[in-house]
């Protein structure tokens, strides 16, 4: 698909008014609910405790922010608070400390798609690279760095283990999230774009 066609997804039509409304609150809630399930199962499936690895929740964070802008960003940091508690993968204070990283893990993708007018259905090589480099690699590199630093601050890993924990976290999460994220974007985006809750901007 051409760049011009990609831009159409984010551009407002003439006279189009988009305001945040009930549909966005519902989308936020549904995405949080989905995140709770995917996050909890992801953690329980590979129970290595508080170190995140092969956690597909980051895909939900990234995709949510691409489709629903800031609403997806909010869901990105809210659902891990609950899913971590339910799966037992992190206690409340640790989950709270993860909030900035979870927000960035989601919004990095939301930002790059809006900033560079990438198509949510990954219709060109540019879209693929944007999602992979920023939405997955950069987001997880930062998320893993923040997360392992939190674990170190809480005394849950020794300073000497920091780099190993970071690498495991970054690689594991990136792979799982890339696979799930690509599936969702390719197959579900065409449907989402037509809904009232889809955000061309950050809030509507």
């Amino acid at each position: 698909m051409s760049t011009a066609a990609s831009e159409n997804v984010w551009a407002l039509e003439e006279g189009e008014v988009r305001k945040p409304g009930i549909a966005h609150i519902v989308a936020l809630a549904l995405f949080t609910g989905i995140g709770i399930v995917v996050g909890t199962f992801g953690s329980l499936a590979i129970p290595i405790g508080f170190v995140s690895a092969f956690w597909p929740g980051q895909a939900i964070q990234a995709v949510g922010s691409i489709w629903y802008g800031m609403w997806g960003g909010i869901a990105a940091f809210v659902f891990p608070l609950i899913s971590n508690a339910m799966s037992g993968s992190a206690p409340l204070p640790v989950s709270m400390a993860y909030i900035p990283a979870n927000f960035v893990q989601g919004m990095a993708a939301g930002w790059v798609f809006r900033q560079y007018k990438l198509h949510p259905a990954l219709t060109s090589a540019r879209d693929w690279w944007g999602f992979t480099l920023v939405g997955i690699i950069a987001a997880n590199a930062f998320g893993a760095l923040w997360g392992t630093s939190v674990l170190r601050a809480f005394g849950l890993i020794t300073p000497a283990a920091h780099l190993v924990a970071w690498a495991g976290w970054f690689i594991g999460n990136s792979v799982a999230s890339w696979v799930l994220g690509v599936l969702l974007l390719k197959f579900i985006s065409p449907l989402v774009i037509k809904t009232k809750a889809f955000c061309k901007g950050y809030w509507a």
Partner: peptide, 9 residues
């Protein structure tokens, strides 16, 4: 929002 999120899970 919280209620709907838990329900949607």
């Amino acid at each position: 929002f919280l209620s709907l999120a838990l329900r949607s899970a």
